[in-house]
């Protein structure tokens, strides 16, 4: 039987271009270019390597606005077989809980799944909740922060990056794996594959198609309420030129300015 692999991908604003509107304190998404979350490209690559060896089917799934289509096409152009975008105005404003729920429900609707890949975290919100959340909703095992992933005979063998070492785990299917950023080199999109991907197109699923009630998802399904966001204000650096004739003078000077302290003070 063909292995069914799912890859969860998120479209995020290009990090270099993120602008916070100083008045509304919102992320101004209209000015920024959207890209595929980098760790998700590594997740897709991990999936495609298993596909290369086993002939697995790779389906990418994302929850997001219609413009996330470009990210989905990109994934197809790298070698995914199918792309499903869960997109519905009811999904807007979701925190990590309904995001996980929506993706888990979408995955269930596709039928059989053996390995689910996610990135370790997104570059824009970076909670790292969504992958593990999906595993919990689907009630399957999970391997987090994997630096390498192999498939062998009904199992995933993964190396996990830990503080002070690595751990190798072997887990039977079905399993969810979150993949470390930069843990592999994603393959290029080629013109041939981009043309084919554009022709094939993506599937758009709304809450009805997925079988979710509007009140379970999006803003209404989110337990967190964001009261206020504070941008980090840059602090003025107290750079000053101090003219001294010896190291000893410098130490005295710094001590007087209370920049240096004695240990027992």
């Amino acid at each position: 039987m063909t292995l069914e692999i799912i890859v969860m991908v998120k479209q995020v604003p290009d990090k270099q271009e993120v602008v916070i509107d100083p008045v509304t304190m919102n992320l101004n998404r209209s000015l920024t270019r959207n890209v595929t979350n980098s760790a998700d490209e590594n997740a897709l690559e991990a999936a495609l390597r298993i596909k290369d060896k086993t002939g697995a089917n790779v389906t990418v799934i994302s929850m997001g606005p219609p413009q996330a289509e470009t990210t989905m096409i990109e994934c197809l152009a790298r070698g995914a077989d199918r792309a499903i975008l869960a997109s519905d105005r009811f999904f807007g404003g979701a925190d990590t809980y309904p995001t996980g729920l929506t993706i888990a429900a979408t995955i269930s609707k596709t039928g059989k799944f053996d390995i689910i890949f996610a990135g370790e975290e997104s570059s824009d919100s970076s909670t790292g909740h969504v992958g593990p959340g999906v595993a919990e909703f689907l009630d399957i095992d999970q391997i987090t922060y994997a630096s390498s992933v192999e498939y062998e005979d009904g199992h995933v063998i993964a190396e996990r990056e830990l503080e002070g070492g690595t751990e190798v785990v072997k887990v039977p299917l079905p399993v969810l794996v979150t993949v470390l950023l930069n843990s592999n080199t994603p393959r290029m999109q080629t013109l041939r594959r981009k043309i084919d991907a554009t022709r094939k197109g993506i599937e758009m699923w709304d809450h009805d198609r997925i079988g979710l009630q509007p009140e379970w998802v999006g803003v209404r399904g989110s337990p967190t309420i964001v009261r206020k966001m504070n941008p980090i204000r840059e602090r003025e650096r107290a750079a000053k030129k101090i003219e001294v004739s010896s190291i000893g003078d410098l130490v005295d000077e710094l001590y007087e300015k209370k920049i240096l302290k004695l240990e027992d003070e």
Partner: peptide, 9 residues
């Protein structure tokens, strides 16, 4: 037209 960007001929 089919428009493909991000690829160099």
């Amino acid at each position: 037209a089919m428009v493909i960007n991000g690829v160099t001929v």
